[in-house]
């Protein structure tokens, strides 16, 4: 049944209506992004027409945006992870303990990534093997890993000044040409990698499928448990990576590392149009969502409001965007 001569191959003709239909949520959030941006430029032209603010965004947004990428995969698969901020810090504990033992920054970095992968893998095992809903399981592991960080560090913070001499520091958090932050390059790399994994790789197909109709996935021979475990491991590894970046940026370790990133990261994913019910979502949306979240704080102040307004504006934009996504999804069917 592979005779292809009898019919014309499928011509993927471009039409605006079709493009809007299949990319509705992405266009929606992109519209929100552009609108907000124009408002910011209009209200604070001095700030938003200069390049400094954009370099500032590109230095700080990647810390949580990097983690939002694999988290998007988990949400599409119908899962949730609340433990990644603790895994960030746990990765750094592995980093510091390994450096103390070996004096090798490279080994320390590898240890951090391994620690993150193992912690994520354990989340996957708890969810898949023991059948605990991931929301509950990762509340537990969030406390567990934060607790482990506090016990192992005895609550102490410490300088990471020694990393400045290593190659890792400029590679992860250096500045290209003295201005363009390397962490932004890493965000772009992680974004492209996750986009390719989700959209071009069969693994991504299976992620969509188990979030959409797990029964169907199983009937069609997909090992849903394996897919889930890999997704959780990926979140763990990339969270530890983000932890190293965030810590090296300030060359200092705080045992509270990651606190404050949880809601921003989740908000980026949902703002980007990923469905909380699973089966639908985009990496592009999450990317835009992260920049909206990251820009609001600076923008609020630049526009002339006090910092007290930040959360109110966060809340409004998140709620309105999620309503918009739900509306678009129904209308564009």
């Amino acid at each position: 049944m592979t005779n292809t001569e009898s019919t014309q191959p499928y011509q993927d003709k471009f039409s605006l209506a079709k493009f809007v239909r299949s990319n509705g949520t992405q266009l929606g959030i992109f519209g929100v992004f552009i609108t907000l941006w124009l408002i910011f430029i209009f209200a604070a032209p001095d700030t938003f027409l200069a390049s400094n603010i954009y370099y500032a965004f590109m230095s700080t947004i990647p810390f949580f945006a990097i983690m939002a990428m694999p988290l998007t995969l988990a949400v599409i698969a119908g899962e949730m992870d609340l433990s990644f901020t603790s895994i960030m810090a746990m990765g750094m504990i592995a980093f510091i303990l390994t450096y103390d033992a070996t004096s090798s920054v490279a080994l320390a970095f590898i240890a951090a990534l391994l620690m993150g992968t193992v912690a994520g893998f354990l989340n996957g095992i708890i969810v898949v093997i023991f059948g605990i809903p991931s929301l509950v399981a990762t509340i537990g592991t969030q406390f567990f890993w934060r607790g482990a960080v506090l016990v192992l560090s005895e609550g102490r913070s410490g300088s990471l000044g020694y990393t400045r001499a290593s190659l890792l520091h400029p590679v992860l958090v250096g500045k290209i040409g003295g201005v363009f932050p390397m962490q932004m390059v890493w965000l772009i790399i992680v974004t492209i990698a996750m986009w390719a994994l989700l959209n071009k790789h069969r693994f991504g197909s299976h992620v969509f499928l188990i979030g959409d109709n797990e029964n169907s996935a199983r009937l069609m021979g997909i090992n849903a448990g394996r897919v889930r475990i890999i997704v959780f491991s990926l979140i763990g590894a990339i969270s530890a990576f983000a932890g190293v970046i965030a810590s090296l940026y300030v060359t200092y370790f705080w045992p509270s590392l990651g606190d404050g990133y949880l809601l921003r990261t989740l908000a980026s994913v949902f703002l980007g149009g990923t469905s909380v019910f699973g089966g639908a979502g985009t990496i592009f949306g999450t990317f835009i969502g992260a920049f909206i979240i990251g820009a609001i704080e600076a923008a609020t102040v630049a526009v002339g409001l006090t910092g007290f307004w930040t959360q109110l504006i966060y809340g409004s934009i998140i709620v309105l965007s999620v309503i918009m996504h739900s509306y678009l999804r129904r209308r564009l069917k």
Binding site: F208, L209, D212, N213, S216, A217, M220, G279
Partner: peptide, 8 residues
């Protein structure tokens, strides 16, 4: 049809 993924 239960073995189809509706959103895909």
């Amino acid at each position: 049809e239960r073995a189809l993924a509706e959103l895909q």
